[in-house]
Design a protein around this nucleic acid. Sequence first.
DNA 1: AACTCCAATTGATCCGATGAATATGAATGG
DNA 2: CCATTCATATTCATCGGATCAATTGGAGTT
Lengths: 251, 251
Amino acid sequence: MRTATLMVTNGEADVGVIETAIDTIKQMIIDGELRPGQKLPVEKNLAEQLGVARNTLREAVRALVAMRVLQTRQGDGTYVTSLSPDLLLDGMSFVADIHLDAGAGEFLHVRRILEAEATALAATRIPDADLVHLGDLLDEAETVAACDPVDHEKLVALDQDFHALIASHCGNAVLAAVTHNMSGRTVRARVWRGMSDPEAVHRTLREHRAVYRALLARDSERARLHAALHVLGVEESLTGSGAFAGEAARG
Amino acid sequence: MRTATLMVTNGEADVGVIETAIDTIKQMIIDGELRPGQKLPVEKNLAEQLGVARNTLREAVRALVAMRVLQTRQGDGTYVTSLSPDLLLDGMSFVADIHLDAGAGEFLHVRRILEAEATALAATRIPDADLVHLGDLLDEAETVAACDPVDHEKLVALDQDFHALIASHCGNAVLAAVTHNMSGRTVRARVWRGMSDPEAVHRTLREHRAVYRALLARDSERARLHAALHVLGVEESLTGSGAFAGEAARG
DNA sequence: AACTCCAATTGATCCGATGAATATGAATGG
DNA sequence: CCATTCATATTCATCGGATCAATTGGAGTT
């Protein structure tokens, strides 16, 4: 009956009833008692089963909802989500966002490694139809960049779509999710907003097109290099080494 | 006064009061209004400031506590954590754990890429003192492995320490944290528990020592290769290709 | 100055009540 | 017989208050 108490003795130190309830539900998922899509007992019953008050259970459930493990629908019930990696790992983008001052470079370094691998893998896996779609994204981005009042928001969205579409075809959902989330919305927005120089925007778009051509050629190594170089360019533009040294090296 | 309502109009769709409260607090952190280590207003005041009930605020705070953004101390108050990447990213290990059936290979693939990079970087950065410590870990692991009733729990802990110590000196906290969390406790435990064959244990320890020797030689490329090969061995032992093909290829 | 002890502060947990959204099944019209 | 409409029950969302427990900080003592 008092499952919660049993879990405490089994697990680590008792740091609180709610933490215990969270870990208990987590463990039920890991153990397979709760499967993706499955409906949980109603709050009243589940609270009684775990030996906690309904409000306490709600805080535990809310924590799991925040980390995309559970999903609640008012009037219906609480369900286990698909637990797919891209769903559970999308909280990482928030981590990247709050470190855009100090640690943005570290996130970008990781993204460079992963994006290079994901792009290389995608070179031999992305369907022709999605390559066409990729080309459309590039064309649209260049159109937007040509306008005088450049819509940076639109460019950010197209940039994100471009990389996400490639990564989604690397054959590894975890790699795609981690890569995608290694730079959050705020980071991407800052990068593009920092491109006051029109030349910087065009250079970035040229890098995108270089990756695109490598994918068209189904050349993994070319794709890997261009992807890495592209992210490296972003890194250097953030650390400031791109404004002088980077630009000089390119020129 | 009604900050929460203002945030809704500013942000995305209103999916609930609690979600709004969570996003508001998140944004306050991203914007720098709340800094690491800072104390939040008391529950009563903060709830009033956000225009929600105290119970509602608690659920929001609880969600942020679960993702290691906030920390509460009874009788004292609620504080913003250090927000360090290793703290905020340690929830990923849970994601890895619940996918140990289907997607363990995908996590290991990512870990292989990152661990190779982290080990290569550490080769030129890890202090001599920690290299000594690393050697001690290896010696201890071999001692444990030599005992008849092999303590697999101890081996798991030593394995985790070995890799964590290396990654911690790669000069990139994000890379270290992501690498570390790419295989959770449950995954590691399963891997080591699956080594019923004593030869498999010794092979793994030999791989560890090969990485160690490369670090001693301060040879980044050797370290990278041995690290990648080591994780690859784990991948193959999980997918089953190690039992036959892997063993044959090695012999 | 150092220690002890008490009261205020603050979060932790619980309880009950009301509102809002959904699902379910009966009733209705075709 | 089938589709639609609608009333009702179920369930989560939100709220306000009450009590317990842990920490803090100052008063008082040595």
